[in-house]
Design a binder for these strands. Structure first.
Length: 595
DNA sequence: GTTAGGG
DNA sequence: CCCTAAC
């Protein structure tokens, strides 16, 4: 039997026993960086697609087997001062502004162009003229987003992974395909309650796994799926459903999730637990058109010849609603993009652009990986009554079409109280401005990561100027729930998000290193670490090895060539001496064979 | 997980 | 300080 044991003497006669190996659980570990950017992008896009893309099916048949792809989903940062001033709590702090509706007359037609924004189309062109003539003009509204794109994720084509392009300083995530042959309102729609499904658990797990690998605390699971306000108590109505243009009717929730083939959603509990029968092909779900509750209106059957008019009805109201139904037979929201009006990123100035991208990516991913709720904003005010029809809320009225928005709201349980809307402390308070170069987040956001990015007109990312902030302003605040009161995880977040901050060795550290190497040699960096730098958590044995390497180099070059804090020549001399000693193979591999 | 060495 | 082959 042969045992090997290091000799217990070495340089300058030091008597150094081998350092016992610590238990595995006690060893320090060095986390490897893994670049999952592309995976992130893909998962993010899938998530976005699952939660945000409310888009009409582009063909008559709504079969699940139909090839469906994500059209466009964009994430943008933009200053939007017009909204936030009257936004309420949720919208200010926990939401994105997703879209806005602008009267058609006010904006250019973006349907024909490569609009990078939200388009709300009423398919006016395809609505029977008899319907349109009711008010004599097109009643659609289009939403235009004029933002430039910066960071673009292109959906995997040909099996290739998504591509990240940094085109500008806006953050813009795009999934697209070229299938613009959508043809709404052409055939009777088999409205299928199953067509809109939340992301799958599998996909969710995948996202979580990826995020976990990056030490991101992920918001609660998506077990309950995505909650759409439009789901609430929507009652089936049958009026006119099968006549005229109503074959085109489709409520918000019926817009299919186009990426579902990639992220097949196998959570049946989420897909069909809405009101009414979930049976496939049903056309009954036209409740978004409203007026269902109106007795006068309901008095008319779909053929206009069934039940007689109730004698005591407000005929004008009824006609008015009828007109509305004719004109706004459906509301089609094509949310091509949603905006993150403000991102605040605190990152060391030594961070690379790559790490910046990664940080943004991870933050956005973390946001979307959590459970999100959708809020509906109209004219800057949140629509709280989920039971109202779109007609009742006025979403279909052209006099109120100036501002329809959707908000994405992270699970509120994850939001610390400090994130209350009026509590502006979620952003660095003006009294304590924090430069972007700060490594750690402000105290006021100790429990979260605040991502906020301000854009100048030129689209450049600029340093945060707290003086420019005023009230619950235009910027929706994007907050990423972090692990509460867990500094370790926070440091790990920073660690994975960017290159470690450079921390030059002090003279005393160099001295400790030299001394340890003199005793232990140049091949036992773990032991050097444990012996001389066990308390210096930021110094890994690889760091020590690297430092020794540079020390040797420094000692060999002329003092004029040296940079940084000068190392006493005495120490450098010891470095050379010890290095020469331990470089001798004779001492490096001394073993003692015991029989 | 450590070590060694290039980047 | 990062990355990774080699052990």
């Amino acid at each position: 039997m042969v045992l090997q044991k290091r000799l217990e003497y070495g340089f300058n006669g030091y008597q150094v026993p081998p350092t016992p190996r610590a238990p595995r659980s006690a060893r320090k570990r060095v986390k490897k960086n893994e670049d999952h950017n592309q995976m992130y992008a893909f998962d993010l896009l899938a998530t976005i697609a699952g939660k945000l893309l409310l888009e009409g099916n582009n063909s008559a048949d709504n079969k699940l087997s139909r090839e469906e792809t994500v059209k466009e989903t964009t994430v943008k940062t933009e200053e939007d001062s017009s909204k936030a001033n009257d936004c309420d709590q949720e919208s200010c702090n926990k939401s994105f502004f997703v879209s806005e509706i602008i009267p058609k007359a006010l904006v250019t037609d973006t349907c024909s162009g490569p609009a990078s924004g939200i388009t709300v189309s009423d398919c006016s062109d395809k609505v029977p003229s008899a319907s349109r003539s009711l008010n004599g003009e097109n009643v659609g509204c289009k939403i235009e987003d004029i933002n430039d794109k910066q960071m673009t994720y292109e959906a995997p084509n040909n099996g290739k992974p998504p591509v990240v392009n940094n085109l500008d300083s806006n953050v813009n995530l795009v999934v697209r395909d070229d299938d613009e042959n959508s043809s709404w309102c052409t055939q009777p729609q088999a409205l299928n309650n199953k067509t809109f499904r939340p992301p799958s658990r599998i996909g969710d797990r995948r996202i979580r796994r990826l995020l976990a690998s990056k030490q991101w605390k992920v918001a609660p699971k998506l077990n309950n799926g995505v909650h759409f306000n439009t789901d609430a108590d929507l009652k089936p109505v049958s009026y006119h459903s099968k006549k005229t243009c109503y074959k085109h009717q489709r409520s918000l929730r019926d817009y299919p999730f186009k990426k579902r083939r990639l992220y097949q959603l196998e959570n049946p509990s989420n897909s069909d637990n809405r009101s009414g029968s979930p049976r496939k092909g049903s056309i009954e779900d036209d409740s978004s058109l409203g007026a269902a509750e109106d007795p006068a209106f309901q008095a008319q059957d779909s053929h206009g010849n069934g039940k007689p008019f109730d004698g005591v009805i407000n005929i004008y109201s009824s006609i008015s609603k009828l007109i509305d139904v004719f004109v706004f037979n459906s509301v089609k929201l094509k949310i091509k993009s949603f905006r993150v009006p403000e991102l605040f990123i605190e990152i060391p100035e030594t961070a690379t652009v790559s790490s910046l991208k990664r940080t943004v990516m991870e933050a956005v991913t973390a946001i979307f990986s959590g459970e999100l709720h959708v809020g509906v904003m109209l004219q800057g005010k949140r629509i709280r009554d989920d039971n109202k029809t779109l007609l009742q809320t006025g979403i279909c009225h052209d006099n109120k079409l100036d501002a329809l928005g959707f908000t994405l709201e992270p699970n509120q349980l994850q939001v610390p109280p400090s994130q209350c809307p009026e509590d502006r402390s979620v952003v660095p308070p003006p009294a304590t401005p924090k430069p972007l170069t700060r490594y750690s987040p402000p105290q006021s956001v100790a429990n979260q990561v605040v991502i906020q990015q301000e854009m100048t007109n030129s689209g450049k990312i600029t340093e945060s100027d707290d003086d420019n902030r005023s009230g619950c302003d235009s910027r929706a605040l994007v907050t990423v729930p972090a692990i509460i009161d867990n500094p370790v995880s926070k440091s790990k977040q920073a660690e994975v998000a960017q290159r470690r901050i450079r921390r030059p060795f002090s003279v005393s550290e160099v001295e400790a290193l030299v001394e340890a190497v003199e005793k232990l040699g140049t091949g036992r960096w773990r032991d050097v670490k444990l012996r001389a730098f066990d308390d210096a958590k930021h110094r890994t044995y690889v760091d020590l090895k690297d430092k020794w390497k540079t020390l040797v180099h420094t000692a060999r070059i002329s003092p004029q060539q040296r940079r940084g804090e000068p190392v006493p020549q005495e120490l450098l001399d010891r470095v050379l001496e010890a290095h020469a000693y331990w470089s001798n193979n004779q001492f490096k591999t001394q073993t003692c064979r015991l029989v």
